[in-house]
Structure formats: structure tokens, C-alpha cells
Computed example of a mutant assay.
Amino acid sequence: KKVRFNYFTVNLMPTEMPPNMQDRVADGPWDMTELLDYLSVIQNQIDGVINVGDYIAEFDRHTLIEGTQGIYSFQIAKLRQTNISKKRIGDPKEDLELQEDEYIGEFVTVVFDSRYCTVAIQSNMYSLNTNQVEVFLTEIRNRYKEIQGEADPTPFMVSLNPIIDESKIDRIQNADIFRKVVVRGSNYMADSMADNDSLEEVSGLIGRAGGVNFELTLSVGIAPKTESLDADLIEEIIQGFHLAEVKPKVEISARQDIESPIDVVNLL
């Protein structure tokens, strides 16, 4: 079984920019060491339960580990109480009865490297997504600063910026045969790519349908292994991904040539 991680720089950026600074880059790296050292002492008081939208999430302080060379790992739990059931094969499902303070926890692992102010976040479709992790880290940072009696000169939010492996893009662009491409994201991600002349029709379709999330799959199916998707279309999607400010998840399956095995590349 494989566990996949996505990599991000951890930055702080102002929640609002003055009109005369809209075109400036105003974010900077955030070193989480001080916060994590505080959280590592269970006796230190802080409310680690945070509303992240449709769910609440909790910093599981018992999972916090400080490794060597400034490496920390911890888990955040997405907590839910609804739509929970158990089932035996052949029997109808049964609702699980939870106490008022009991939840089902779906965990995401985060590894922080203080040397580079980067995080590796486990790819787990059942737990928190990247935006929810940003909301969580922003709020727990605010609570910590309040405990310390500190205040930012202007409100900041945590921003996780994906670290893109350019070699993956180079490798996939040099392929001769493209078998499948899958693009997953939200409506505003499609809009971001449409701004760069990619997925423009998809963005319009999502808007007309009132959709919030989308998954686009293009595949040659079980066609002979020499068959390929249109290379110009793949190039357009890759370039749109590369230029988009808000990036969807893009997975491309390709062969370097007819004799090569299929290479599956996740651009994010």
C-alpha cells in the first residue's frame, strides 16, 4: 500500500491588501517551530478544535513527534457525526450511535521541515483538503498568538503554495503517447485555468450547471497501445496548470514511446 504526499511551502500573507499594493507579492515563509514546540507540551492550554467549514477539525497533540534536524510530524483529524453506519455482508446497514462528544476521526498527516518552512501533507481524500488545512493552521496560529499576548500588525492567513516538480512536467511533455488525463478541482480552479485559455469550455459548463466541483477524464480506453490523445490538448492542459494561480489536481498517463511502460504523473 502506498501513501502519497503533496509538498508545499508554508507562508503568511495579509488577508487584505491595500488597493495600491494589489499587484505586489506580500507573502513570506512561516516557521511553525514555536507553535509546534508549545503544542508538544500537553499541559500547555489551547483549544485545538476548529471549524473548517462543513466539518470541525482537531489537532491531535498525542501524534506530534519532533524528529531530528527540525522535522516535525503531526496529525489533524476531521471529525464527523453524521452519515455513519456499519454493515455486515448480506445484512442491511445499521446506524452507529455515538455519544454527544464522540466523533469519527479521519486523519491527515502533516510533516513540517523547519529548515525550509515546507510541509508534506498526506493525500487523503477522506480527510481535510488543502484549503481546510490552511484554515485550520491560520486559526490555531491566531489562538496561540492570543495566548502569548501577541498581535499581528495586520491580519495574516496561512497560505500553502504547492512545490511543483518541474522534472515531472518535462518528462510528460516529452512523451509520445498520451493514454489518459484526469483533472479534478473546483469551479474557481477551472476559472483560473480558463483565464490562461485552458479548460475554458469546462469552466463555462460548470458555471452553467451551477457546479462546485468537477472531474474531467479524457482517455483512449482499451484502444491499441499506439493510440494517443491529442498532444496539443495535453500541452494546453499542462500549460494551463503551470500558469494557473489556483491549481487543480492533474494526473496524466503516458508512454515515452510504444515500447515503454505507462508512466502516471501527478502534477500536484
Rank of each mutant, 00 (worst) to 15 (best):
L12S: 08
Q148D: 08
Y126E: 15
V182H: 02
S260E: 06
L267A: 00
I56E: 15
Y38W: 01
I163Y: 01
S203G: 05
F74V: 02
E236Q: 11
Y38K: 01
L96N: 11
G207T: 07
C117Y: 14
L268G: 04
A223D: 05
F5E: 10
K247T: 07
S127H: 01
E134I: 07
I121D: 07
G207H: 05
K78L: 11
A209W: 11
D54S: 11
W30K: 07
K78D: 09
M32Q: 11
E97M: 12
S253K: 10
I258C: 06
L79H: 10
G204L: 02
L205D: 13
G185L: 00
S203M: 02
F241S: 01
E102F: 04
S159R: 12
Y103E: 08
E16P: 03
A26W: 08
Q173P: 00
Q45E: 11
V202I: 14
I147D: 13
L35S: 03
E251V: 10
Y188K: 11
T138R: 03
N174D: 14
V119P: 03
G53R: 05
L199N: 00
H242Q: 08
D60R: 06
D195V: 05
G48E: 08
K93Q: 15
K168C: 00
T217M: 14
Q45L: 04
T68Y: 07
Q122T: 07
S73E: 09
Y126M: 10
V183T: 06
N83T: 04
I50G: 04
V25E: 15
T63Q: 06
A254D: 02
V52E: 01
A194I: 09
I172A: 00
T9S: 12
E259D: 15
M32W: 04
V220K: 00
A77D: 13
P153Q: 10
A151N: 05
D232N: 14
I177Y: 09
T63F: 09
K249H: 13
Y144Q: 07
E201D: 13
L137E: 04
Q132N: 05
G211R: 04
L205I: 11
L243K: 08
V25K: 10
I206G: 04
R24L: 12
T15R: 11
T9C: 12
V3E: 15
I169H: 00
G211I: 11
I169S: 01
I147G: 09
I121G: 02
A26M: 12
N266D: 15
T33F: 05
V3I: 14
L216M: 15
N6H: 10
Q43M: 13
E94P: 06
I147V: 12
Y116P: 01
G90P: 08
F112R: 01
V52G: 01
I177W: 06
H62P: 05
L199Y: 03
Q122G: 12
D95R: 14
R88A: 12
V246P: 06
E146W: 07
L35P: 00
R88Q: 14
A223E: 07
I50H: 00
D27N: 13
G210T: 02
A244G: 09
K87P: 03
N266Q: 13
